[in-house]
Simulated assay, not measured.
Amino acid sequence: MPSAWIHSLSKQQAQRLAIELGVSVDGTLDDLPRKLKEKRTSLEPRLPSQLTAKSELAMDAATSVGNVFLNAGIPGQVSYVQAKIRGRVVGDLVRNIPVLPGTDPESVLHFLIRAQEVYDLNLVGDLEFLALLVGRTSGRVTQILGLHLGTSSKWGVVSSEISSTFPPPRIREEFVSKYVLRRFQSPTKYLTQFIMPVVAAARILSYHGSESDLVQRIFQNMHPRVRSYLVFGSKPTTIAELHALASHVAEARAVDAQRQGCENQALAGASQSAGRGSRQVSMAIDETRRVRNRGVVCWDCFGRGHLKRDCPSSVPLPSSNQGNEQDAQQ
């Protein structure tokens, strides 16, 4: 990552960054940027992986218009290390977005939805986020991203231009029906994983309903098994309340899974105990029989411990039918 932004810091910003990194602030003002660059070089191997070549060029263009990487729109005052950690998290999330090879309307919509989900996490500023997306696109979409990087545009403006350029109005109406109005939650998908794509699609496709209408639609399209956790709760009216319900459902499902695991473990233990008890009873019966038969005398071999019918030395006599067959043959 280029380090020219260090020279753009004010004296107060440079001193604050030096304190955070454990760099001495003694010396002249010209020595401080050099110390910060040396410290940054030593930290770089433990910090996030570098952006792609296209993203680095885009970031250079962003910094050239006065946007410092450290404070590039990130909400609140965060340290250099925190900003780098956030950048790494977002970089990993962006790399999971499939590369957009062309301008197929549905592929563009999927790309925008996944990008919107990452952007809604609010971890990095708009310019860095756009720079990361450059490496996941090609052709006309890359040109749009590069143009807006040069003019310091927001992600919402870029997303609106991309979505209005490629899906025609007729296809947009189909997409609203498919990805917003008639998108149903599967029983295996977590509620948050269901809510975020629908909200992103509604925002990208310019859903004309109000927020409460969208929330009501999402609530109706939840799986009945998930809605059973919300029987005694109040019906949500905002997106924030929807996410709060998602947290409640996730916690309830975790408790149910833990309870089911404990019950299964208890049943398995009871079954093993019953099996051990039956084996002990069987062994006790066999031992009782052996003790009881110790004084028994066989009438065939006059041995002790068994009866005549169990005598190992006795030879079975031919049956009457076998004798009749032998007489008939003679």
Rank of each mutant, 00 (worst) to 15 (best):
M1I: 02
S3P: 00
S10E: 14
K11M: 07
Q13V: 00
L17K: 08
L17H: 02
I19H: 13
I19C: 02
V23D: 11
L29P: 00
D31V: 04
R34I: 12
K37P: 00
K39S: 13
S42Q: 12
P45R: 06
M59W: 09
S64N: 12
V68H: 11
F69E: 11
Q82H: 03
Q82V: 07
A83L: 04
G87K: 01
G87F: 02
V90M: 07
D92V: 02
L93F: 09
L93W: 06
R95T: 02
N96P: 00
I97D: 10
I97T: 06
G102P: 10
T103R: 10
L109I: 07
H110A: 13
Y119K: 07
D120Q: 10
N122M: 09
V124Y: 02
D126K: 03
D126Y: 03
A131H: 06
V134K: 01
T137P: 01
R140D: 15
R140I: 13
V141G: 03
V141C: 04
Q143P: 00
L145P: 01
G146W: 11
G150H: 06
T151A: 10
G156I: 11
G156R: 06
I162Q: 05
P169V: 12
E173V: 03
E174T: 13
F175S: 08
F175A: 07
V176Y: 05
Y179A: 05
V180K: 03
L181P: 01
L181A: 15
Q185N: 10
S186D: 14
T188Q: 14
Y190F: 07
Q193E: 15
V199Y: 04
A201P: 08
I204P: 01
I204M: 05
H208Y: 05
S210E: 06
S212P: 05
D213E: 15
L214V: 09
F219P: 09
Q220I: 09
H223P: 02
Y229E: 10
S234H: 04
T237L: 12
T238Q: 14
I239P: 04
E241F: 01
A244N: 11
A244P: 00
L245W: 01
H248P: 00
A250I: 01
R253F: 02
A254Q: 15
V255W: 02
A257I: 07
Q258L: 12
Q258D: 15
R259W: 08
Q260T: 11
C262H: 13
N264V: 03
A266E: 13
A266C: 03
A268H: 09
A274M: 09
G275L: 07
G277S: 14
S278R: 12
R279Y: 05
R279A: 14
V281P: 00
S282R: 15
A284I: 11
R290G: 03
R290H: 11
R294Q: 14
V297M: 06
C298I: 06
C298G: 05
W299E: 15
C301P: 02
F302C: 10
F302D: 13
H306L: 04
L307P: 00
R309L: 07
D310G: 04
S314A: 12
L317C: 05
P318D: 15
N321I: 10
Q322V: 08
Q322G: 01
G323I: 08
G323Y: 08
D327P: 00
D327W: 09
Q329L: 13
